[in-house]
Design a binder for these strands. Sequence first.
DNA 1: AAACAATATGCACGACCGTTCGGTTAAATG
DNA 2: CATTTAACCGAACGGTCGTGCATATTGTTT
Lengths: 222, 222
Amino acid sequence: MDEGVAGTKGEGRVDGRVARGNETRALILKRAVDLASVEGLEGLSLGRLAGELKLSKSGVFALFGSKEDLQLATVRAAVEVYVRHVVRPAAELPPGVGRLWHLCLNWLAYSRDRVFPGGCFFYGAAAEFDAREGKVHDALAAARADWRAYVEETVREGQAAGEIDAGTDAAQLGFELLAFLEMANAESVLHDESGSYDRAATALLTRLRAATTDPSLLPDAP
Amino acid sequence: MDEGVAGTKGEGRVDGRVARGNETRALILKRAVDLASVEGLEGLSLGRLAGELKLSKSGVFALFGSKEDLQLATVRAAVEVYVRHVVRPAAELPPGVGRLWHLCLNWLAYSRDRVFPGGCFFYGAAAEFDAREGKVHDALAAARADWRAYVEETVREGQAAGEIDAGTDAAQLGFELLAFLEMANAESVLHDESGSYDRAATALLTRLRAATTDPSLLPDAP
DNA sequence: AAACAATATGCACGACCGTTCGGTTAAATG
DNA sequence: CATTTAACCGAACGGTCGTGCATATTGTTT
C-alpha cells in the first residue's frame, strides 16, 4: 500500500522528524530538477547537490537510498511541475478544440518561460535515456506515454463535443501536434532563440484549423 | 592552416606512421559514435573506449589531445555518416518536391535502420548539450543549423523548379517536416517501436501535398 | 648510420564518483 | 524517566575519470 501523503495517520498528526525529512527532500528535488534539465539526469551528483545546498553527501544519499532512486524521485517531481503548468490549467476549460489549443499554448509557455532552466525537462531526459534500459528509462517512457494518451483523449473529447472532425485520427493528430511542440523546444534551447515558438504556433493553428468543424473556435493568428 | 587530408604533401605520398595513426583514430571514432548515440557524448570515456578496442587509455588520449577534442571529432565523424546516408543519396535526384520527399524518406530510414544504435546521433547529442556552453554545443548547433539550411534550400529549389508553391514559407515548411522526422525518432527509440515512422510518413506526405503544385509528383500512400 | 618525428605504452597523479559505517542530535513512545 | 526511531553528519572506501610524463617502438629523412 502506498501512502498518498507521507506520515498521515488517523488524524492529521505528523511525525516532526519525518516532516523535516520531507522538507529537505523537497528542497533537494527542487534543485535536482533544475540541475537535471541542464546537465542531464546522469549529470546529477550527490556531492554537488549536497555542496550547493550545504548538506552532507551522505545525508542526501540517505534520504533517497541510491542514485537511481534520486533520479526516479527527480522524474516524479518534474511530472508534478509539468502537470501544474501544462495539464491542469487546460483541464479547467470545457472540452473541445479550445482546450486542445490551450493545452498546446500552455506547453509552449512552459518551454519558453524556462520553467526548467534547460527547457522541457522530459525532452532532455527522454533523449538521454531513450536507448538505455532500467527503471529510469521505464519511468520516462511511462510519463511520455501518459502525456500522449492525455492529448489523444483531449482530441477525442473534442470530437465528442462536435468541435473536431469525427474522421480525424486522434493518435495521428496528437503525433503531429507534439512534434511541433518539441521541435520548438529543441530549436529554442539549442540556439537560445524564441522565434521557433511562433513557428510552432503557426503550424499548430494551421493543423487544428484543418481538423476542426468550426474554424471560428480558433483565433486567426497565434 | 588545416590539412584537408592529413599527411598529403606535394605528391600523394603519406607518412606511414601518420597513416597508421589515422587508422587507429578512425577505429576509435567508429566505436565512439555508436557509444555516444546510446550513452551520450559525455558518457564517452577514454578508458572504456581503450578497453573495448584493446588500446591503452593514454594512447587514445594522445590521439585526440583531450576529451573535448574527442567529442568534437566524434561529432565530425557522425556528420560524415549522416551526410552519406541522408544527404548524398537525395542530392543525386533532380531538384523538386521529389528530392525533398526522398530526403525525408532517407532520414526515416537512417533512423529506423539504426545506423547509430541509439537512433539519430544528433537528436541525442543536441538534447544533451542544448543548454550547455562550449565548443561541443557550438559544433552541434552549427551542424543542426547547416541541416536546417540545407532542407530550406531544397525547398527553394523545388519552388524554383515550379513544383512547390511559390508562396510557401520555406523555413516554416522545413520546421514542420523536421518536426515530424524527429518526433518519429524520439518515439521509436524511447518505446522501441517502429509504427511512429509510418505516422511520420503520413504527416510528411500530407504536408508536402499541401505545398506542391502537382500532387501527382508524390505517391498516394507512404 | 645517425638524427628525427610520430604512434603507442606504462605508470602515477589528483579529483570526484556512489556507497558504507559509526556516531550525534532530536523527536516520538511507553 | 529510559528506549526507540529518524534525520543528518564526517570520514573513509574502492573505483573511475581525465590528464601528465617518461619511455619504448616504429617509420622517415639526411
